[in-house]
Design a protein around this nucleic acid. Sequence first.
DNA 1: ATCAAAAATTAGGCTGACCTAAATTATGAT
DNA 2: ATCATAATTTAGGTCAGCCTAATTTTTGAT
Lengths: 225, 225
Amino acid sequence: MPQKISENIQDYLKRIYEFTLSGGRASTNQLAQALGISAASVTNMVQKLSKTEPPYLTYEKHQGVKLTAFGQQAALKIIRRHRLIEIYLVEKLGYTWDEVHAEAEILEHAMSSLLEKRIDAALDHPKFDPHGDPIPDINLEIPEIEQTALSSLKIGNKGHVLRVPNEDPQVLRYLGKFGIRPGAHIKLISRTPYDQTMRIKITETGNEAIIGPSLGKKISIAKDS
Amino acid sequence: MPQKISENIQDYLKRIYEFTLSGGRASTNQLAQALGISAASVTNMVQKLSKTEPPYLTYEKHQGVKLTAFGQQAALKIIRRHRLIEIYLVEKLGYTWDEVHAEAEILEHAMSSLLEKRIDAALDHPKFDPHGDPIPDINLEIPEIEQTALSSLKIGNKGHVLRVPNEDPQVLRYLGKFGIRPGAHIKLISRTPYDQTMRIKITETGNEAIIGPSLGKKISIAKDS
DNA sequence: ATCAAAAATTAGGCTGACCTAAATTATGAT
DNA sequence: ATCATAATTTAGGTCAGCCTAATTTTTGAT
């Protein structure tokens, strides 16, 4: 029977979902680090989660874990709530995009189905959170969006920002200062040959920003014309 | 140092606060019943809570417990959050007054200081929750209101409702059907001599409602002219 | 004042979710 | 192919917060 699902289990599932988005398996160490607990504890918990009825994930020794369809639904449910909260806080309570992640991380576990419905309705069924991450709909479907990494832009080419999936408030404030946010139009000015650091221009604000290579890979854009 | 205060401790403090509002001490059994746990567990926990630094409460064997000033502040903080959430859900998210208690009971533990501030501001510093219970202000002060029990009204006299402090959704829906809510104007039609059951008329709706003696003691009113 | 019933406490245990240390298995550079 | 290192798992332990059963203390009716 589908037992009640505790907060930390939700956190495990969410992390595993994120780590396996690109198809692979999530490793014990990865999860331990992301969850801020020891690797031994992770091994222990994933063994349990692979033995529930139905199981949340499949586990093979030393091979990492992968969510079952059941586990994925559970993960998407939390992710939906997380992202709904984020956009609600920004739209209705004056939060900035760097403040909402930490808040949502806690509130997501306290959100009832009714509250989820009401917030979804109050925002007219939003499709994206403040960072441009897609919000799974009521059936937990995620809209597919075509997107490229900012770092793949050619010099002189233009694009507009789709996603800035970074939880770090410092980074978000830095980007926000230049006007880099979902929807912003940008143009790649230059790139250093050595480490691929980019200089980009933001159309809306006229600012120029320096973006390092790792951040450049995380920011998703659509290429314009 | 003020250690982090877990959810169940918050629940203990809230209950003790409620039970000792009228000056006495909260008994082990009372608390056990209210919290849905065994009396032995309560004894155990209150002993701990009386030995923290600073202590949340004073405990003497077989004499019940009483909050310290420190414990009271902690309780009031949760109560403030609980009531702010209740009124917010009604005002901004279309909840009815019978739905909000259960929701707030969970959300109160997930609410940050920032969220508390934003919600307080969004509602322009509300003074009462949907049941007419006063919301402690930012300094945790509670406005004193003069109030009498509905049951003390004389036949033929009028009044208006101040508080309907009942968590039971069924009761709240029953009362709501007649238009009995904070602010409603009422008049006592009759009272049965045997068990004090009252028949009252609600001015706004023109309805008449039957109110039993225990509920009559819980509903607070102000007498009109 | 007595004493049965009610209330509270003590003693001893359980479980979930974490930990460290030790042992095992996998990996990749040579 | 070997082997040092990294990754993972196993073993054994802690702690918070609950439990039941047994015991002690208080209370109130007579």
